[in-house]
């Protein structure tokens, strides 16, 4: 028999307490074309309009029955606030089914990095759009349905604002510069994540796609990604889930140290993940 509300169940899972059953919360974005059609809120307009963003997020709860909602629907809110120019109309359907991506990265050297202002989450770029969408959802949703909000991990944001190609090379050639770029990204991510919580987010999902062992070595993850992700997670007052794409098996134990929960994709068999994370096991979603 069900005794817990969806939010209690998710929190209990992330804090490793007893649950009455497995929570059906979705830490990743839920923007399918079918949901856009059923609620009338379409990409790419959704990305820049709090009303549309809240409407599409709500639809995943209302239509699919996820016991959660999740905003935003792309991974470039932070990088855009730090100066990236985005392309919102990718592909033949003009951004309807493809997330916005970085057209030009703003940082090319240390001077440029130092000249870049730290974003204010309440005024810079689309950060205020996401915050307002969280507030709207908080008003519209039953209190027991958790709001999950995503913040991109500092390592991934650093790659976005420097450009992934040069960034990956500088990881080898100019590690001090890389550290400074990640630190810059970290400050932006932390302020933004804290503002999400203030706006009403119940769980912060840290998405760090480029910190995948498909790309960087475990040693590089330890040096350039993990400390910042860990601090970001510790810097917010709600539980966190860390999502990293790809074949994350080699990093799972380290990922588990960074957040309350770990999210993996279908390339990692659940049983193997559980064996690795073991006692530190908290929450795994695919």
């Amino acid at each position: 028999m069900e005794q817990m509300s969806p939010k209690e169940r998710l929190y209990a899972t992330l804090y490793r307490q007893e649950v009455d059953r497995i929570p059906v919360a979705q830490p990743l974005q839920t923007g399918t074309v079918e949901l856009m059609e059923s609620c009338g809120a379409f990409w790419p307009a959704v990305h820049s309009d709090p009303e549309l963003m809240a409407t599409l997020a709500y639809e995943a709860h209302a239509k699919i029955g996820f016991e959660s909602v999740r905003v935003p629907f792309d991974v470039n809110v932070e990088s855009e606030a730090l100066g990236c120019i985005l392309d919102y109309e990718k592909g033949s359907r003009k951004g309807l089914d493809i997330q916005p991506s970085v057209k030009t990265a703003p940082i090319s050297n240390l001077e440029g990095l130092e000249a870049t202002p730290d974003p204010d989450p309440h005024t810079t770029g689309r950060m205020p759009v996401v915050l307002e969408a969280i507030r709207l959802l908080r008003k519209r949703l039953p209190a027991e349905i958790p709001i999950l909000s995503a913040v991109v991990g500092p390592f991934m944001v650093a790659g976005q604002i420097r450009g992934v190609d040069p960034f990956m090379r500088e990881l080898m050639r100019e590690p001090d510069f890389v550290t400074k770029v990640v630190e810059k990204a970290f400050r932006a991510c932390l302020a933004y994540a804290q503002a999400q919580v203030e706006a009403g987010s119940d769980v912060v999902v840290i998405v760090d796609a480029s910190a995948s062992p498909d790309l960087i070595s475990p040693a590089q993850f330890d040096a350039f990604a993990k400390p910042y992700t860990k601090d970001l997670s510790a810097g917010v007052s709600v539980p966190t889930i860390l999502h990293i794409c790809g074949r994350t098996k080699p990093s799972l134990a380290h990922m588990a140290e960074c957040a309350n929960g770990v999210s993996i994709d279908s390339l990692v068999p659940m049983r193997e993940a559980r064996e690795i994370v073991g006692e530190r096991w908290r929450f795994v979603a695919t």
């Binding site: 990956m168 090379r169 990881l171 080898m172 498909d214 070595s217 590089q220």
Partner: peptide, 13 residues
């Protein structure tokens, strides 16, 4: 898995 993408890239360069 002795080399990852960053090492591969600078060797390619």
């Amino acid at each position: 898995k002795e080399y990852y993408l960053p090492q591969m890239l600078i060797s390619s360069d």
